[in-house]
Design a protein around this nucleic acid. Structure first.
Lengths: 206, 206, 206, 206
DNA sequence: GATGAATGAGCATTCATTCAT
DNA sequence: AATGAATGAATGCTCATTCAT
């Protein structure tokens, strides 16, 4: 009978649990097709309880999508600091962090959510542009400019189109989301092949 | 007010009008958030009329998403035939067709639809994998293999990961869909830069 | 190609065809669950054509239910005339006509229709009370009174409750409609047993 | 205006209220013509609340029609036990219970419902055949066989067609449902007259 | 007359949100 | 705080009826 009813909790923890449940639901079915009751059930609480932490479904979504991104940035930022390391290593690390933190995480569903619900939630799109894209591109721009200056790039013009470097990452997510079930895409190979294409060989010889 | 009521039409034309309206609506708001009445209104017809052409919302969506892709394939396929032309030109043509037929068309919203609704409509995902991705990759694989054999690729390993060539196209759509309002991405420049990175310079000079 | 389209017909015949189709449909599914299109399809005509003969669904139903009963009465009425024949024979004939004209005909579904839709169509109920019940009871009353006077009834009080004589007929229809599939009810035996109960044995023997 | 809003209730009681309201509605207008909103309104609750207790309209109907019959059976069954009492008294009790429990109750509308919706709900028909008809006939068969053996029946053959005994009950309901407004039928008289016809007089004289 | 595409009111059902407990 | 029954607006779909052909 000890059905852990009316379990009280640290509000912050409760909030986090709801966000986690909400993310799983939204990622699975999209915003419109997710029922608040699904979220509650997944969080192991009652429907009404969700409303004690979020005023409505829309706000739950926005808080969720915004909050989930923040942690990613930190590490990536460090990349730019180290002037010493070769650009190729920096970009490789970029992919590596992306792989570890996004592609191989539940966060890989984020893109789908943002892309899918973007038009309905401009706030979210803007948030991502401002907080993630802008910062990511800025970092890449710096790293690529440095690489170009050092002659590490086969095509220095790449430094002007840092989106090109993001493209394989994007592809890896989209593929993982849609087609992984039909055919496996080896993300690391995709990244490495791109790195080999982007950068002049490091000639360990002589 | 030209109320054009009870306008009869060629069934095929009517069907096409509905599909066009539906595409606009679905692209704008997603499957769940689109009301059949919206579609009808956009097509300038009554709610019930939609059901004379499609049995239900789901089928309207599937027929729509499936039908809209078909026309794309034809032209791309021709690319592979011409053995004579340089690989770079072939890939450039691939991007060009993509730009003309998808990126600069309403079809650019397709990716969003597929990505967003994929999990709810596995039929659609499978259709796209089978009809578009598989065929597109096959073509690229042939072209790239040929290029590798001819020494046209800076990194011949690219021939094994044709998804790499698709990545910039993907990026161009995602950017156009989400961030174009905040910052312009010059798709042609993206493609050209990538081509310059991918292929060894043709050195017309000396 | 000779798809007998836009077949013109004698209006009366067309009307009759529609009524027949409508009866089949209404009997099968009831008023509300019958679609005008079903009726049209069953009559082998287009939806709109029904409306050339009946102003609306309700009127189709009323005309139908009213019209289908009329033919029954005639023969029964004759029963009362023949003063000479024994009451038992007259009542037997009543059941016989009922069996032949109603129970073993599609008309057996009439009761269901009237009972089911009665509250929604008081006109129909009233019509049946006035045209069928009243007349049928009147005839039975005369026959039974005569029988009582002649000492043919085991219980002369039956002459005051002619509904009692109708009851087995009612039972035969209800049973045929609902339970015949589970267990057979031999209507003739039901009637004969009732006749044997109702009337004093005729004892042809000394 | 005592708007008694958001009144919470014992679930069982709520369910019973809905069933009662549903019965009234279905009895009045039939299955198809009854709107769930009517049911809700009649139960004094909101539309959605009905769905907290029944998954859909069909199930509401089936549960309703099935549930309403159960209570009838009990008492009737006792009839057969008492071997001592004369068959006539037993059958008289049968009619009496029927009158009290069905004819003079809202349950008298049940026949209409079953007859009307039978073809659309075979489950219901089968339920009634199995639970009511079969059992009722079995009891009558026993009582009548006993009566025949004791020479209480004017026509012993009646014991083979127990439906004959049910017929007056059926007539009383159908009449009450359809024609009572036009002409009164004295049910007790109908039953008594039938009993007097069925059984040999009990000779209270001497 | 005959047709059947078009219309839109109508209804079953869902689900975000509220609130009495 | 937590619950979940209750609410009612919203939406997919149907079908009686109309009307251009």
């Amino acid at each position: 009978m000890a059905e852990r009813k009316r379990e009280k909790r640290d509000p912050e923890q409760r909030r986090a649990e709801i966000l986690a449940a909400a993310f799983a639901c939204f990622a699975e079915r999209g915003f419109a097709a997710t029922r608040m009751e699904d979220v509650a059930a997944r969080a192991g609480i009652a429907k009404g309880t969700v409303y004690l932490h979020f005023p409505d479904k829309e706000r739950l979504f926005i808080d969720l999508v915004s909050g989930i991104a923040s942690p990613i940035l930190g590490e990536v930022g460090g990349m730019v600091e180290k002037d010493a390391i070769p650009a190729r290593a920096a970009v490789a690390m970029f992919y590596s962090i992306f792989k570890r933190e996004v592609l191989e995480t539940e966060r890989r569903h984020l893109l789908r959510l943002i892309l899918a619900e973007g038009p309905m939630f401009p706030v979210v799109t803007e948030f991502y542009y401002r907080e993630i894209i802008t910062k990511g591109l800025a970092i890449l721009r710096i790293v690529l400019a440095r690489a170009a200056a050092r002659g590490e790039l086969r095509n220095p013009a790449v430094a002007d189109v840092p989106q090109l470097v993001m493209a394989p990452a994007l592809m890896s997510i989209v593929w993982a989301t849609l087609f992984e079930g039909y055919e496996h895409l080896h993300a690391q190979k995709l990244f490495d092949t791109f790195l080999d294409t982007l950068f002049v060989p490091q000639g360990g010889a002589i």
